[in-house]
Design a protein around this nucleic acid. Structure first.
Lengths: 222, 222
DNA sequence: TTATATACTGACTATTAGTCATTTATTACT
DNA sequence: AGTAATAAATGACTAATAGTCAGTATATAA
């Protein structure tokens, strides 16, 4: 009998519905000001029910975030499969991340919380573990690309693939975050477009890690 | 009569005492889990009194943070005065920021909140303005150094001093933040020392923005 | 000494995360 | 179908805590 299976499906479906509602509220209000009552109302469920599916507000928040991460992840995997050259993959990864920031700004904004030590303490072990697995998956992907780049001779072999992966990802994230929160102010005060700054940053950095061969290939692509 | 003046001094003193207490509690617990009652107890005052001096918990938090920022700022101003060459000033700024991170990690950690859009909404206008002024002061300093670097011919003149200031500062901050929250995990999983990664990042980036003349001067310094 | 102004207090309110005894719906069994 | 057993959902309740404000204590002025 498939009753067990159906119930399992329904349970998963309810979890998704709750995530949908939570996403709407978190997008609007952010973690601190969103309330569980609001989320319950948006989900057309009672507050108690939310706690049958997620252990805490923070768990729910991470649940929404992880779903966003998978959007980014899957988009990239799809695109990367159609590309052969490691250089193109690097460029595509960097471009895609920027695109994701532009078109999923509210997801991106949620990512801030990942970096707050105090936040993690309120999260259940299961969610933390799940989070760790997904994050690891992302890093393996980034690092894998860099390794391929070095193997194929377009990236400097005296650099550590892991380190340049972190640097590229972190500096991009940082500039996008700044663009998100302070973009208008920079434009107004200094007439600086932070999305342009991000391009400059990535160009400078890419140039610094490419070999001569890589640079040739890069200029050929333009 | 100096009564007015004395009272003014005492008021300022009380504000500082409250900041001291708040700092202790925020360092221990972080913004979300610290409570005003705890701070009041640490300050040996009633909770109501805190609100006579600061408008909200977030205001108090920013008050502590701004004091930390001034520590960093003053340290740099002192050091920069003793240096002539723009290149040395750039290197010193970058080193000092890292030192500050190492020895004032808890201050540094507080800075995370500056980047959260949702946070600012709970802050009074006065504090926000004060915050803006101090931040502006910091950026003027960073940008000023970059401008001098370009004028003196050690930094590429085809780059915008503001943009490279932001890039250098942001990428350093990002890597320190990551080192703070995830340093242990990176060490364990990939045997990567993120403080080394930060050095690599700064070296790569500096190299990318220096002119030939700048690079010569740089190697001469080592 | 008294009146006024200033600094401080802590009980109180409002909000909200999280719980749990109770109710409602679903499935299994006769 | 009817009934017992199981699972899902509820919402009133508790505890914690940011922020308030009427009242108290202290310092200054007259």
């Amino acid at each position: 009998m498939g009753i067990e299976e159906r119930k399992e499906r329904e349970k998963e479906h309810r979890k998704e519905e709750i995530l949908d509602a939570a996403q709407k509220v978190f997008f609007d209000k952010g973690l601190p000001t969103a309330t569980m009552d609001e989320i319950a109302e948006a989900a057309e469920l009672s507050k108690g029910t939310l706690y049958l599916y997620y252990k805490s507000k923070e768990d729910l928040y991470l649940g929404v975030m992880m779903r966003g991460m998978q959007v980014l992840f899957n988009e990239y995997e799809g695109l990367a499969a159609s590309l052969d050259s490691p250089l193109q993959k690097i460029i595509k990864l960097s471009d895609l991340y920027i695109d994701f920031f532009v078109s999923n700004r509210k997801f991106f904004r949620m990512f801030h919380f990942l970096q707050m030590p105090q936040f993690h303490k309120q999260v259940s072990d299961e969610m933390q573990q799940y989070c760790g697995i997904e994050t690891r998956r992302l890093w393996d992907l980034v690092i894998g690309i860099m390794k391929k780049g070095i193997e194929s001779g377009i990236l400097r072999s005296d650099l550590d693939p892991i380190e340049i992966g972190i640097i590229l990802w972190s500096s991009s994230s940082a500039l996008m975050m700044r663009g998100d929160t302070e973009g208008d102010r920079w434009k107004e005060r200094f007439n600086i477009d932070l999305s342009h700054t991000l391009e400059v940053s990535n160009r400078l950095f890419l140039n610094a890690i490419l070999t001569d061969k890589g640079r040739k290939e890069f200029t050929a692509l333009r």
